[in-house]
Design a protein around this nucleic acid. Structure first.
Lengths: 232, 232
DNA sequence: ATCAAATGTGACAGTTTCTTGACAAAATAT
DNA sequence: ATATTTTGTCAAGAAACTGTCACATTTGAT
């Protein structure tokens, strides 16, 4: 999984360090801001995929900052998890009202935090999870909508893209032409079975131009299969 | 669009107009309030980066208003420059005590005012300056509201500027026309999807005039992408 | 080796999607 | 107020994609 950028806004240094350590370990790429101004600057340069926001901040309250973030078109899509201390729990509804996506009460275990974060990310940005599919040198990136072999772009049309995506999501398994039609075209479409052959051909051709001619395999009398290993 | 928003609170219409003119020219986005009530409303809608506050106001004194602003968590961070008339100079210390960040004595030259404002902004909100995005030779400067390629200015309209800004902040990723509309225009606007195409065209044209014709890429059937690499 | 069935291949026309120049309304500047 | 710039829409033209077909090639069984 590519490193997901996280912004931590928290003024207590000890907690910052703890978070940095725990989240880095969990595979996130962490940036820390100790005040709102710093947060804004970091936010601007590279919008993170999630913000961990302390409830109490030196200048304006975290909740106020969250409100601002959710108002700005630029940042409104970024999910926010509020970090609240024990006594502040009563206000949690307020936090969620304002647009925070979740909250967690200090003290919390890193494990729990990470679990919450993943849940929020799954809910709000499903594409972050399986942003790309990789097999050997072949890489299909959903967010970028790109196919690459050995870092070089493979040029394919929309249908071939969907076809390849489907196959990479279900490798090693054979699908009949009709099954492929259902999965890739949608299941209430009248299209000749043989049309699948043509698109398979186009996909193969594109891959072959980059030296991969063995991924898409024919299973005579049955259908097609996407496999890592050469058949035969 | 990334013009720095300024709020002017001043009851003399002539001065208001002068300020509006001078500050717009200097690249600020100016809003004017002639009384405190109006000021509060504007303040609420769009927190400015700096407030120019007249010392003498119809209802409560400017100094009183400043005190309130500095007490409110919402506004305490916004720097204030007091506009004082000749005779009031004696009270300047009082103004600064109260939380104003600078003062300037009427009459003043627009040039001097702008210089003061920049100084205050530099001091209090360093990130407003030198916010810029760079990719290869292409440089987008938020503070100056300018786009340059190889040190040469790229002439580009406000919408194209925001479009480019958005893309540079989210490079490599594909966005549908509707996503672009949400992010660049604001998400409660009814605008034809095709309008995005036209602005993309304008942006491309501007960049192409400086030799960059590969940054903004079309992903057929999906949307557009800003990418460092040529797509082929 | 021969044959029939299954699959591969290149071409093509219809369709969809994008590009582009023009234009009038709206917003800004002079 | 007038001139200039910017904006959103449109429609025609260009480009890319799609599904289908006809024909070529391969395959496996006889």
């Amino acid at each position: 999984m590519r490193e997901i950028p996280i912004l931590v806004v928290e003024d207590e240094v000890a907690i910052c360090e703890m978070l940095h350590l725990a989240l880095s370990k969990a595979g996130f790429s962490v940036e820390v801001a100790t005040d709102v101004r710093q947060a804004r600057r970091l936010l601007f340069n590279r919008p993170p995929s999630l913000i961990l926001l302390d409830w109490m901040l030196p200048e304006i309250s975290g909740i106020e900052f969250a409100k601002q973030l959710k108002k700005d078109a630029q940042t409104k899509l970024i999910p926010i998890i509020m970090l609240t201390a024990k006594g502040e729990e009563t206000d949690k509804i307020k936090g969620l009202e304002v647009g925070a996506d979740d909250y967690i009460t200090k003290p919390f275990s890193p494990r729990e935090l990470v679990a919450r974060m993943k849940a929020v990310l799954r809910r709000t940005s499903p594409f972050l999870e399986d942003e790309h599919l990789v097999v050997e040198n072949l890489r299909l990136d959903l967010a970028k909508h790109r196919v690459e072999i050995a870092e070089k772009e493979v040029s394919i049309g929309p249908t071939e893209f969907r076809l390849l995506q489907f196959f990479m999501q279900h490798p090693e398994r054979v699908y009949s032409r009709n099954q492929v039609l259902d999965q890739v075209w949608g299941n209430n479409v009248y299209i000749e079975e043989r049309t699948v052959d043509v698109h398979i051909r186009r996909l193969r051709k594109a891959l072959a131009e980059h030296g991969y001619d063995h991924f898409v395999q024919t299973v005579r009398g049955v259908g097609y299969r996407f496999s890592t290993r050469p058949s035969l």
